[in-house]
């Protein structure tokens, strides 16, 4: 029985076919299993990707002033200015993270939502996806903000999330509001005009030996709105539009933004409306970028003259640094959702 004995010996061994087959199977199995696990990670990490984009968007908005840093002054009706806008950040300045400029907030949350025919505003959603969210993937987003405290103002932009699978980040920020000045008549005044000497440098440097004021607290006539409130002038007429002089050279006003505007009871007073009877709600608005558009800068010195029909001043010029005031920073919550 030699043949049978030989067969019995071989039966105890693994056949070469089995080894080859098993090896091929294991390689294929490991290969497929590896691919499947990678596929699962990709599927599961979609949320993580959204979270990362939300985090990045929050960082750009809260810690970056944008590019250019004063993008809120760009005239978006001009193609060159619109092209110049690279990134939307709301921050006051790069070294003041978490402090947002109010005018940037207003511009950011008030775009043209109707097909972008209004070229003076940001275009929703294309400007936001290209200059804030970034990336080729068409992310949807919702960004909202609420000011804490009595005002409770809210802002929101974007779509309503359709499900809970959204990337999310919540940030706590401060809001810097523009500066203002209150002017009142002088008792027993002898002059029909009040002059404000605007030595702009004095707003940035409180005294010659101090460093400049942190941008978060600067009253910035060049880059921000500035309001002059006329209080106690009820019954007095403003005889002509307030005048601004660079030395002895009068500064001309443009009709369009940015310019200088006078409001009485929230109604704008135009050139033909003078003399205008003042009430307790009378304001002069230096629109942000107005002085910059006229070529003035931090070292400029101007005289701002208001002329009335009654003696309300004493002839002594007011210094802008003495009368300009700032609002304290307010706090706000910002939420960002990406999907």
């Amino acid at each position: 029985m030699p043949g049978n004995r030989r067969m019995n010996h071989e039966n105890g061994q693994i056949s070469i076919d089995f080894i080859i087959g098993f090896t091929i199977f294991m390689i294929a199995f490991i290969f497929v299993a590896t691919m499947i696990s990678g596929l699962l990670i990709n599927l599961q990490s979609q949320r993580i990707d959204y979270d990362a984009v939300a985090y990045r968007t929050g960082t750009v908005l809260v810690e970056d002033p944008g590019e250019p840093s004063e993008w809120n002054l760009l005239d978006l009706t001009k193609a060159a200015d619109r092209d110049n806008l690279k990134r939307l950040g709301l921050n006051v300045a790069r070294n003041s993270p978490g402090i947002l400029r109010e005018s940037k907030i207003e511009k950011f949350f008030n775009p043209d939502r109707g097909g972008c025919s209004d070229r003076s505003r940001l275009c929703y959603p294309s400007d936001y996806s290209q200059k804030l969210i970034f990336g080729d993937y068409p992310y949807s987003f919702n960004i909202s903000m609420r000011e804490l405290g009595p005002s409770g103002r809210t802002w929101a932009i974007g779509e309503i999330p359709s499900n809970n699978n959204t990337g999310y980040i919540r940030r706590v920020v401060s809001i810097k509001k523009p500066g203002y000045a209150d002017i009142s008549p002088v008792p027993a005044g002898s002059q029909n005009h009040i002059t404000i000497n605007m030595k702009i440098q004095t707003l940035f440097f409180p005294d010659p030996v101090s460093p400049s004021i942190d941008p978060a607290y600067q009253i910035d006539l060049i880059y921000e709105d500035f309001w002059v409130n006329l209080t106690g002038f009820s019954g007095v007429n403003l005889t002509k539009k307030p005048e601004l002089f660079d030395g002895t050279t009068p500064v001309t006003y443009d009709e369009n933004y940015p310019t200088l505007r006078v409001f009485i009871d929230s109604v704008e007073i135009h050139e033909g409306d003078y003399p205008a009877l003042l009430t307790d709600d009378s304001k002069i608005h230096f629109e942000e970028g107005f002085l910059k558009s006229k070529g003035f800068h931090e070292s400029s010195e101007l005289d701002f003259i208001l002329t009335f029909d009654q003696p309300v001043g004493d002839g002594i010029a007011l210094n802008i640094a003495d009368i300009a005031k700032r609002y304290p920073l307010s706090e706000a919550i910002m939420e960002i959702r990406i999907w």
Binding site: V173, S174, I213, D214, R326
Partner: peptide, 8 residues
């Protein structure tokens, strides 16, 4: 934010 002075 709490450690940021609200005014100058």
């Amino acid at each position: 934010v709490m450690n940021t002075p609200k005014d100058y």
